[in-house]
Design a protein around this nucleic acid. Structure first.
Lengths: 354, 354
DNA sequence: TATAGTAGCGAATACGTATTCACAGTTGAA
DNA sequence: TTCAACTGTGAATACGTATTCGCTACTATA
């Protein structure tokens, strides 16, 4: 005589394949076949089953599916979170957003993990070794990363976005040609008549710093100029401080190439503090071409990294790794970047005779 | 005679409870008991099992676990993505980051979903009805949301961050007291001697716009001043355009309260274009107290929403909903916000006799 | 007409875990 | 001494799906 409805909690049970089968007067396996798109089901039977499914609003249980087929349909995104949290840098949001778009048509869903030192280990255990995710996107720029070794040992599908320095050709990765892009940006500044070009890098232990620094150096040396490099942390205060030192020291640069729009913002602040006008007294360029480039320094020249394309490449690569390991040697995919010139580097050209 | 090793793909098999049991010379169920923290296992047996687990680097299969216990340990985050993608607004990144921190000690992991119009439906089906997530955090400000009805119908655990307008007392939610905060910010501007205070809102269909507008109106009217409201989209260009109209129209405001740091940035740009100095000729205040407040307009007065606390409250609420539905009436939790005064509203006080 | 081939389908099983049930052995109180 | 309670355990089962294995009919070929 007991009512069962008031349990409230367990009531949320959901309908299963067996229920559908009962209603359609077929076996559960036939229902399953319809779901997996098996061709050997009579089209009329299939239609009837489908209609009953729709009618009862049936949805397969993702966990059962994952257990049986050992494929979860989840992709993990691992980003190293800068200490001090995310600054205004929209890189992370752009990335996430693009990944979701890239995955939209597929059978995969994004699952997020921000790594700080403390959660780092948990990612690997909780998500990966528990088979919760089918593959990993690693946003990587640290020169050393012990996780990569672990992933390789387990033959776990993963793609690095960025430059996994030590792992040269042993890892699938997608990146821009940062040295070339940095060289182009530097050459652009030189072509605009700037002569003492400084480089404001992030932490030098990070490969993206190293790569862009290299391109900068090459371009500067090729032009017979000398280089001057400053290092700072990935936050505004640090960038502003470094830029201030840079611009008040001896042999002050007349142009700065910053690693990042965030750091470039710091340079602009420093310049404003010092009363230096951009672009006349100081040229400025950087990387990312984020929205803020339209407002910083009256328009900030910046390298567009083509994040949508970068992400699409990474995702489709990862999916193919997950689905049928091509057993091909790992490749590094390079997505072209493009310099987006704006006012911050548009000084009147100062006669540079051919 | 066939080698089995070269399959390469299926090799990634992983060790199971049964394997552990065999090694420990106990039954699989005892191993399971150790894992679930069942007290009835002999401590010596348990120790031995644990040691074997550690030795063989065992990890329980998350999918099997989820299937059996109908609890996945995943929490979904649903954010409505503004069209045009994320601008420089760091709100999303702050949120995500804080959620991960809040979940760090718990047994839950974050799983992300950005909703655009097209993926909206898929969230509900793929993640929720497939039982992939145990609960949902909904970042909500639309006045109407059909998803909430669906969630309620299925008695699915979810918590709204923000104000789910129509759903008054029928939904668990966590929010700031936006009317009060807006009133405080407005009163602050008035106390600093500003007299014609404009409000730059986002889209008015959004509850956060409505709530802050209300507080602004109350404060302005209480001071015997008149209100003037402008609406714009959630992007810099739109804000700048609206602010320009605002500041060039008749009866130009001498202070602006913006809905958001992003919109406030647009106001600053417009002011700069028009040669209006902040704070002397134009007072400015907004909401979010993001990092950029330290650099906009020489320091932007902004309401700190206390996102860490907001998020912690939402997460622990959600977890308790998931674990044992308290069958208590839904509650709206209000986290106090605090006005962070900076230079942008710090005009010399112009004699306002008591 | 006999046989090979094939389409369609149900029974059974596997995936790895959590949980229920029963049972043996021990303890403790009557 | 007897029986009840308790402790620690293994066998069995369930979770919902995908998949393998045969079996039945039916068609095509000879």
């Amino acid at each position: 005589m007991e009512r069962t409805a008031h349990r409230g909690n367990k009531t949320r049970q959901g309908i299963t394949q067996r229920d559908i089968a009962r209603l359609a007067k077929v076996s559960q396996s036939t229902v399953s076949r319809v779901l997996t798109g098996d061709e050997t089901v009579d089209s009329e039977t299939a239609a009837s089953i489908r209609s009953i499914m729709a009618q009862h609003n049936y949805r397969p249980d993702g966990n059962a599916r994952a257990l049986r087929s050992s494929r979860s349909g989840l992709i993990g995104l691992v980003v190293k979170r800068p200490q001090g949290g995310f600054q205004d840098d929209p890189f992370f949001a752009m990335l996430t957003s693009e990944i979701i778009d890239a995955l939209a048509g597929s059978n995969y869903t994004l699952c997020l993990e921000l790594a700080s030192e403390s959660t780092q280990r948990s990612i690997y255990d909780e998500m990966l070794r528990s088979r919760r995710v089918d593959g990993l996107l690693l946003v990587e720029s640290a020169a050393q990363d012990e996780r990569i070794g672990l992933l390789q040992r387990d033959r776990f599908p993963f793609v690095v976005i960025g430059n996994p320095a030590g792992e040269g050709g042993t890892v699938w990765s997608v990146d821009n040609d940062n040295p070339a892009a940095a060289a182009e940006a530097t050459s652009h500044l030189i072509a605009r008549g700037y002569r003492r070009i400084g480089f404001l890098a992030g932490p030098l232990g990070i490969t993206v710093s190293q790569d862009r620094l290299r391109g900068y150096r090459e371009a500067v040396e090729a032009a017979g100029l000398s280089s001057s490099v400053w290092e700072c942390e990935f936050n505004l205060e640090s960038a502003r401080k470094a830029a201030t030192e840079m611009l008040t020291g001896p042999d002050r640069p007349d142009a700065v190439l910053a690693l990042d729009d965030l750091l470039a913002t710091g340079v602009e602040l420093a310049a404003r503090d010092l009363g230096l006008s951009i672009p006349d007294e100081l040229g400025l360029a950087s990387f990312n071409d984020s929205k803020r480039c339209e407002i910083i320094a009256g328009g900030l020249t910046s390298v567009n990294l083509n994040i949508p394309k970068l992400v699409k490449a990474a995702c489709s690569l990862l999916m193919s790794l997950i689905e049928g390991s091509p057993d091909q040697a790992p490749t590094r995919i390079i997505v072209p970047a493009q310099l987006h010139v704006r006012a911050s580097s548009e000084r009147q050209i100062q006669a540079v005779p051919a």
